[in-house]
């Protein structure tokens, strides 16, 4: 009898420990941070850590509509940098990202944003054709076109993804294949190599964790 009780107790205990661990699981913050004095709701001053955020942006999307950060404000989203004529890592990145897109297709809190770095050729109608051929329609996954300056600065300074023109590269550009996870407060919470299946699987696991932070 005693034995049964104690094994039940152990079971219960381990369940509580496990579930409490899960609640505490939080994704890390990336980028620069600094301490700032802020006032809380009661007007009391305290020191808080402020993390790097994605600034306002404005680009043309695949429907040639001006699209701004308003589209992603208040959502968790995955951002990446690619170009349609890329024959090396982009097909793999988007093949993998497609599986994430399908998994969260019905969740209105999630979006996908792909910036082209080919400012010469990837006009909105080219992006539209690409999206359709990839199998994407609707506004959940935005393909964005902008000037070289605006896109490259956003990539390197804000999303921390290296991009560049390179005449010696096979397709004329070089870039990293990261899928960057942004939270509802525009902070960077993850970067996953979109060419590696295991990292993309991790992204699929981390999205619900991030969403859970906002459910309290």
């Amino acid at each position: 009898m005693n034995k049964i009780i104690s094994s039940i107790a152990i079971c219960l205990l381990s369940i509580t420990i496990l579930s409490s661990c899960q609640q505490e699981k939080k994704l890390p913050f990336y980028g620069e941070r600094h301490a700032e004095t802020v006032k809380d709701a009661a007007g009391v001053e305290k020191i808080d850590t402020v993390y790097q955020t994605i600034p306002n942006w404005s680009f043309l999307n695949q429907d040639s509509v001006v699209t701004t950060n308003k589209a992603t404000d208040g959502k968790v989203y995955v951002a990446d940098f690619f170009f349609t004529s890329c024959t090396t890592i982009c097909p793999t990145m988007h093949r993998n990202l497609m599986t994430v897109y399908k998994e969260f297709k019905t969740n209105p809190d999630i979006m996908f944003v792909s910036h082209t770095i080919d400012f010469k050729y990837d006009r909105p109608y080219v992006l539209k054709k690409y999206a359709q051929k990839l199998g994407v329609d609707g506004p959940k996954w935005q393909f964005l076109y902008g000037s070289k300056d605006s896109v490259y600065t956003l990539a390197e300074k804000n999303y921390l993804v290296a991009v560049g023109e390179d005449s010696t590269a096979k397709d004329g550009y070089i870039h990293q294949g990261y899928l960057v996870l942004i939270d509802k407060d525009r902070r960077i919470r993850g970067a996953y190599d979109g060419t590696k299946e295991d990292q993309v699987e991790q992204l699929k696991k981390d999205i619900p964790v991030l969403l859970a932070e906002y459910k309290k």
């Binding site: 024959t87 090396t88 890592i89 097909p91 793999t92 988007h94 093949r95 497609m98 690409y130 359709q132 051929k133 990839l134 199998g135």
Partner: peptide
């Protein structure tokens, strides 16, 4: 080739 044509030769949407 796998990036475009897929691990099992399934292709990639209408792109490949």
């Amino acid at each position: 080739c796998q990036n475009c044509h897929g691990e099992n030769g399934e292709g990639l949407g209408q792109l490949a």
